[in-house]
Structure formats: C-alpha cells, structure tokens
Design a binder for these strands. Structure first.
Lengths: 124, 124
DNA sequence: CGGGATCCCATTTGATACTG
DNA sequence: CAGTATCAAATGGGATCCCG
C-alpha cells in the first residue's frame, strides 16, 4: 500500500497519502448528517427527540441509524439512566473533540462561501 | 433568519449558525468524490482520463457529472486547447485555494483516525 | 419517549457499450 | 481521448405502524 512508485514525484506521493487520509475521514464523518449531529450535541447532551428537533429535516429512522454509526466509531456515548422514568441521553465523547479543527475550518469556509455566492456574479 | 431567540442561550445561537455554515459547506464539497478530485488536481492540471486514474474507483459517468458541478461552483476550470490535437484539461481555480484549511484539517484528522483504529481496542 | 420493522419510492452509482 | 447513453443494482430516505 505504501510502496514507492519511482515514476511519481514526491509531491504526488504526498498527495496520494493525503487523498487516502481524506478518504478515511470522509468515510466516518462524511454524509449528510454525521457532522450536524455532532455539532448539535456540542450544546450538551440530548435525548433522541431533542436531537431530531435540533437537526432539521432528519427522520427518526435515519437518526437512529446515524447515532449507531457514530457510537460505533466512538464519537458519541449512549447513556441510559435507569431510575424511573428511564431516560436515554446521547453525549459526545472526548474523541469527538478531535474534530474541532475540522468543524472549525468547515464552518469558517461555509460562512465565507455563503457570503461569496450572495454577491458575486456567476462567473469569476 | 438571524432573529434572536430569547429562550436560546447565546452558545446555542452560535451553534445554529455553525450548523448552517457547515451545511452550506457540505452542500458544495460534500459527497464521496469532490474533495478527492480537487486534491488530485492539486498535483497540477490534468485531463479527464488522468483524473479518473488518480481518483480511484470513480466511473467516467460520475466523474463527468462531478466535474460539471465543481466547475459550476467555481472550483475548477475546463480549458480547451484548440490546436490539433485538441486537448482538454481541468485545473483548479484560485477559489479552490480557499479550501486549504479544510483539506489540511481533514487529512490531518483522517491520518490520526487511521492510526487510532489500527491499534486501539474496540471500546474507549 | 426511544426507537425497530416494514414498505416503497427516488436518487445515486456502477458497468458496459457507444460516439465524435 | 472525452465524454454520453442505457440499464441494472444499490443506497437513501420518507411514511407508517408497532412495541416496551
């Protein structure tokens, strides 16, 4: 997987690695919902329906599915309070803190982009 | 859209904005291929088939479609050299440079994540 | 309330073939 | 080479019902 290709310049090698890394990243946090759910939980732990309200447009089925994946990948924890009434809450793990930079750069860029498409002519 | 909700703490407002920004970002650069294509083009301008070879797994149909979207959104330029033989090349615009931070944080995180899942037990 | 199960449609994607 | 056309398969996602 990491054999050296003599024909490729070093920069190409570096790019290949970056490409793979970004691939890995997109694999676990890509898709329409995952980052939004994580972001919603940054306000604090939430219950299922609270998350659904916070993440506009997501259905219960999809939310359920995404929460499971996020838990498997270690981003969130599902906590069950057994005292009646039973309450189930989702909260971020410390691992999801490692996404700070990603979230920050993404939201920064998104904000910039929105401003651009609002008052820039169609062609550059 | 930016009215103040009295019930929400300020942090919640900020989160809502971030969420929207990230939504905007994911809208244009989300999906399985767009960032990979951009990354591939960071090595330099490339022709259609070269891109297809660089971005492993993408089909001609999907690549064609993605290239169009990327062009519409101002990330790449399609350049036709009319001297025979006619050559068509794709290159990044300056606008795609604004994605540096995003790409950087994503690839960094992806690399870190890969290392983690390679030698960390299943549960945290 | 917190989901799971099922059904069903729409969009995406892949494979293959084809064309200027 | 630079795509397009076509069809089939996979996936995504909504709606609804159900259960403890």
């Amino acid at each position: 997987m990491f054999q050296l290709e003599e024909e490729l310049p070093l920069s190409a090698q570096a790019c290949t690695n970056k490409l793979a890394s970004i691939g890995d990243a997109l694999y676990v946090i890509g898709g329409k919902w995952k980052l939004r759910i994580i972001l919603a939980l940054q306000e604090g732990k939430k219950r299922f329906n609270e998350i659904q309200r916070a993440v506009e447009g997501i259905s219960a089925r999809v939310l359920s599915h995404e929460l499971k994946e996020l838990e498997i990948n270690g981003f969130i924890k599902r906590v069950v309070y057994t005292e009646t009434p039973v309450v189930i809450e989702y909260e971020l793990t410390q691992y999801s803190d490692t996404l700070q930079d990603v979230l920050e750069s993404l939201s920064k860029w998104g904000e910039m982009h929105r401003r651009r498409i609002m008052h820039v002519p169609v062609n550059e």
